[in-house]
Each structure stands twice: as structure tokens, then as C-alpha cells.
Design a protein around this nucleic acid. Structure first.
Lengths: 276, 276
DNA sequence: GAGATAGCTTTATGTCATAAAGAAATAATC
DNA sequence: GATTATTTCTTTATGACATAAAGCTATCTC
């Protein structure tokens, strides 16, 4: 029998994530009474991450928000990694579970994706968390349940459905990540991303006067897309990311519609096997 | 006139990235002769990241590979951030610039995307690098030029084209990231991701006996997709990601074809240079 | 009360980036 | 050929971080 290293820790994590004991009155035990709750700690950590980014999230900083030292948190949570898992799953509760749209899966999925997009912009630190190993918390599953339910109205075959959902999620997170990360940088360096961009672009000209010859297609494209800033108050890079999100989403949904109408030749999984 | 904080550093970075002086014979200057080259340092850093992941990339570790202390690197490179920028742009030279496929933009783009996918799997650390602010290096532009050139064969209008390209890149990176991150974890914890997954799933049952009622759609879906393990030698999570990549890619390309045939009412504004 | 136990703080360890200062090597200048 | 300026590289120091270990303190059970 294989022994799974760290399974004890895993059990502790899962119990924390799914803990239903939140309402129980805490059976009187010997020892000093706890002055904090896990919820308080997780909330403080989320508030900190929202306000100052993932880089500022240290055990000491979270403890300080609660009038404790950083070490005090270790009685509630095994370590920072587990705290981040809890933050991750907790904040996902904000993602709507029943977006409007009725029977129209496309309209519903569009609305839901936009909510998810806005959610990520509200909590940009979420995009910096490694997805190496799924957290498997209740709210993550709720979110998955929601999007799968919406898309199952389309009639996509089961093996394709989950993968299409994952593809969509990757796209949304990817685009959101560019905004999230540009938003964080100004606080660190003191330069807005537009300023930064202009400075760099100028340097680019300086350092590669032959840009137009080396990269003809890009250069032509840049010329064709005239400068038209819809809203001067929103930073350029952010507007660009918003446009990318909306166009990419509609392209992807077009692709799903095509799949629904014309299931592909191959059974289930499509595409040639990877080389390698 | 606005003064850009850190522009001096930016100039140094850009010069390093685009430096054409690589072949020049180094004009004899006073002082000790340099024992290293930037290329050597960047190569060593890439080798280290390939072998042991981004977490193991410290200045000391890179220095040690070159028989120096970590501090020795600071005479060649302003700091770790700039070194990572150089690694980032340098390794992108591996992405093919002229994939086969001829006039068929869809076939060509498929092949190219698969190469990119394999590239990311070869260098998983690339996916952990913040895209906050574009590196704007020569190989990054070359890669962009390649994919834009391929897709410009489709006839998509200019404002849409770049955003579709960015959407595609986000999708590829997102899916690759899940593999990349699961691959790194085993080295750290000593547990393969399949083992880990198995252990966690068991715990999930234990902790939420009512899973099927709480998440009916997911549960039904999981049943419908019988276990279809094509290749026992490849970890399950990795196979799943591969399938997601191929299905998501073909769905997205279907969407592009739809756009090409039936240009939509009127998507929005365009803007200056490229995003990343 | 008397333990026992649990929350919390203090202190310590090791890792990291990188600043500061010094040692050593090398070219230009006298 | 000695001196000086300049550059590479090492040593040492600083401060941030996660977290282990040990101790203090409050509060329970007996």
C-alpha cells in the first residue's frame, strides 16, 4: 500500500475548506479561549490582498491587521499555503450562481463570463495563485457546477463539455491577468502603466530603428488600427484588454455554436495527437 | 514634461535585450577582464529554471553554476528582474517562425499553436513570469510577428486580428500552465500529481458525503464520461490538459472561421502598438 | 487550588535580494 | 616599470520572509 506523504496535512486542509462546524458552539475545552476565528483571519487576508496585492500578503501583515503577531495565525492555519487556499475558495463565493439569460445558453454564458471577469478584476491576486493542484473547495465546485450547468443547455457531448469549460476559464483568466498585473505594478514602481508604456516605446524606437523592416506585419497592423481611445479616463492597456476580452469571448462562443450545430468528425476528442 | 521614474533602468534593460554589440570585439578598457558573458549567465539561468523550476532560480544558484558568487552577476545585470526578462526573451527564440501549412491559415496556425504548446511544456517556468509589463524584446516581437502574419491570411479586420491573437495566446498559456504547475509540484512534495489527486478525492468523499446532491451537473457529467485513459504511461491530469488544449484550440479556430465568413455588426475601437 | 491545555509572543534559523565595502586584476599614463 | 584609475569579484551586512522551538499566560477540568 502506498503511503501518501502529507496526507495528514491534506485532511487538515480539506476539513478547513469544507468545515461545517462553523455554526457549532465550540465544545468547552481546557486552555485559553481563542481570540480569533478562521473566518476573521481569511477575511483580513483577503482585504489585505485586495488592497495591497499578493506581494504584500505576509503572515506578519495579516497578523498585524488582527492585533496579533504573525505567529499567532499558526494556531488556526497550518501555514501560509493553506491560508491562501482558504482565501481562494472563500472569495469565489462572490461569483454569481444564477445569472440571468433563461434558456439561451449563449446569453447566459456571456453574462456569467462577464461577471467572472469583473470578479477577477476585483480580486486580481486570485490570478497569481498557482493552480498546480486544485484546491477542491466548496465554492470552486459551486462555480464549476454553475458554468457546466449553463453550458450543458447547449447540447455539447459530455467529453467535450468539460474541456470547453476549462478552455473558457483559461481564456478569461489569461486576459484578466494582464489587467491585474498592470494594475499592481504602479503601486510598486510609482509609474502608471501608460507612462511606462510610452517610455518603453520611445526606447524601442531608439534601440531598433529598423523595427518596421524587421516586423512588417506588426507595423502595418499598428498603422491600420488608427488611434481611437474610447474613454480617456481608462488607461489604454486596460481598454485594450477589455476589448480583447469581449472579442475573444464572442469568437469562442461562435466556436461552441459551430460545435453544437456540426459535431466534428472524430468521436468526442478532436484534433491530432500531439507529436512529442 | 513628465519625468519617467526608472527610465534610466529601462534604457539599460532595452539595451541588454536588443544589444547588437554581441559580436563586437570589446574595446580594450582598463580594469579586470570580464570572466563571463551575459549570454553565459542567461543560458545558465535558463538551464537552472528548466531543471529545477522558477522557485530554485536564485542569484546564488545561478552564480554557483558559473563558479562565481551570486553577487558577481550584478556587474552584468542590474538585478534579478532584468535577468528574468533576458531569460524570457532569449528562450522565445525557440518558437518556430515559419511553420508548415502553406496558404491554409488554419492548418498553419494549428501547427504553430502546437509548437508553442510544446515550447511551454519544455520551459514551464515561462508561465510563471508576470506579464505585468511587456518585456518588448526582439524574440517576443518575432513570435508576435509570426502569429500575426499567419492569421492575417484569414482576412480578419485589423482591429479584431490582434485581439484574437492575444486571446489565442492566453488560452494556450492557460492550459499549458496547468500542466506546468502540476509537473513542478512532485519535485517539491515528493508526491506525483495522480497520487495527490487520488488522495484528495478520497478525502473529498469523506468530507462531503452529499457531493452528488450539491453538485448534480458535475456528478452526472463525471459519470457520463467513462474513464477513457488513452495512455496509461502519461499522468491522467496531463492527458486531460492535452485534450483540453486540442479541443479548445479547434473550438477557437472554428470561431475565427465564423468571424471570417460573417463579420459581425461592429466591434469597437482600435489603438496603438501591440499588447503582449 | 492544581494540573493540563491551548493561545499567543519571543527568539532563533535559514533563505532570499541586494547594498556597501574591500580585494584583486588589468589597462593607460607617467 | 611604477603609479593610478577602473573594473571584476568576494565578503560582509541588512532587512524581509516563513516557520520551528521554547516559553509565558489565560482558562478549562478535576
Amino acid at each position: 500500500m502506498v503511503v501518501f506523504v502529507g496526507q495528514g496535512d491534506a485532511r487538515r486542509s480539506m476539513t478547513l475548506l469544507w468545515r461545517a462546524d462553523r455554526t457549532e458552539p465550540a465544545p468547552a475545552r481546557p486552555g485559553r479561549r481563542p481570540g480569533l476565528t478562521i473566518d476573521e483571519i481569511v477575511d483580513a487576508a483577503i482585504a489585505l490582498a485586495d488592497a495591497r496585492g499578493m506581494a504584500a500578503l505576509s503572515m506578519n501583515a495579516v497578523g498585524e491587521r488582527l492585533g496579533r503577531t504573525g505567529m499567532a495565525l499558526y494556531t488556526y492555519v497550518p501555514g501560509k499555503a493553506e491560508l491562501v487556499d482558504l482565501m481562494y475558495d472563500r472569495v469565489l463565493a462572490e461569483v454569481p450562481t444564477d445569472p440571468p439569460g433563461g434558456d439561451d445558453w449563449r446569453a447566459t454564458l456571456t453574462t456569467w463570463s462577464e461577471s467572472l471577469w469583473e470578479f477577477y478584476l476585483r480580486h486580481p491576486w486570485m490570478l497569481q495563485i498557482s493552480h498546480a493542484r486544485a484546491v477542491l473547495g466548496p465554492n470552486e465546485y459551486t462555480m464549476l457546477e454553475t458554468v457546466v450547468r449553463i453550458l450543458s443547455g447547449s447540447g455539447l457531448p459530455a467529453p467535450v463539455l468539460m474541456r470547453v469549460v476549462n478552455s473558457l476559464l483559461h481564456f478569461v483568466r489569461g486576459v484578466a491577468r494582464t489587467i491585474a498585473e498592470t494594475r499592481q505594478a504602479p503601486g510598486v514602481t510609482g509609474v502608471s502603466d501608460d507612462q511606462w508604456w510610452y517610455a518603453r516605446s520611445a526606447l524601442l524606437d531608439e534601440v531598433t530603428p529598423d523595427f518596421a523592416e524587421r516586423f512588417p506585419t506588426i507595423s502595418r497592423l499598428a498603422e491600420e488600427r488608427a488611434f481611437e481611445m474610447a474613454d480617456e479616463s481608462v488607461p489604454y492597456l486596460e481598454q485594450e484588454a477589455r476589448e480583447t476580452f469581449h472579442i475573444g469571448l464572442s469568437v469562442f462562443l461562435d466556436g461552441i455554436e459551430t460545435r453544437v450545430r456540426r459535431p466534428p468528425a472524430g468521436p468526442g476528442p478532436a484534433g491530432p495527437p500531439t507529436g512529442r
